[in-house]
Design a protein around this nucleic acid. Structure first.
Lengths: 119, 119
DNA sequence: TCCTTAGTTCAAAAGTTATTGAACAATTGG
DNA sequence: CCAATTGTTCAATAACTTTTGAACTAAGGA
């Protein structure tokens, strides 16, 4: 019942960039980052897309090595693979998240005001 | 005879990431970065793809705001838009280039040994 | 002027990614 | 056990991206 994840050394730069180059997925990553490592269930992202479509985007993120999904009962708890990404591509995730944090064009997970943008 | 470029504030994060999420284009950017701001003509990249296909990829990079192309006689001289990208997405380009610099899976522009990988 | 060099444009084909709805599986709570 | 909740899978379609070759433009040199 564990889902397939690449290990750190299998994470590919072009694949990670391509996966992050989608507004829905970037919004997911931004929200995960704003929650500082707290695992979130898939259903937390239903603002962004239909259930089916979310399943697709979350699988892309997981298969690229950007997120980790753990099966807990009937939920999948999603976290960012911060340490693995930082080890593989130092500074990349931080700069993407910082840039995404200011991006008004990206879809929002909560009803706005959900994400703290540090002044 | 000047080509269309977005200005700095029109550069979009997801578009930049998507454009960089392609091995051919990442190789182009890596090579441009390795040449430290020296303008290169399109034909320098013919190792990577056919002339027609290069034209397509270079247009994508230019339209995304990643590169600038200046018409000089019958050549287009290409440079990285380092300052604009750094202003817009601090640290992003540097971390992408650093990660790409070590990536053996990316296509090479010269016959290898062309790019200095700092030890 | 004629030829070459450098690069673009166009239309077609091939391939890939995103989105949808219906049906399914697994767990939990009553 | 039954029903609800959570999320996946599948097949279809729509939409986009990549690649190709042939035809083209524009500048420069002989």
């Amino acid at each position: 019942m564990t889902l397939p994840h690449p290990n750190a050394d299998q994470i590919s730069l072009p694949i990670v960039l391509a996966v992050l180059g989608d507004p829905t997925r970037l919004a997911i990553v931004r929200y995960l980052a704003s929650k500082e490592g707290v695992p979130l269930s898939c259903s937390q992202f239903l603002d962004l897309a239909s259930k089916t479509n979310l399943s697709y985007h979350l699988a892309k993120l997981r298969e690229a090595g950007v997120t980790r999904a753990e099966v807990v009962g009937t939920n999948r708890m999603i976290t960012l693979r911060r340490a693995d990404l930082d080890a593989r591509f130092p500074g990349l995730l931080d700069s993407v998240i910082a840039a995404a944090g200011e991006d008004k064009a990206l879809p929002m997970v909560g009803g706005a005001d959900e994400i703290e943008i540090p002044a």
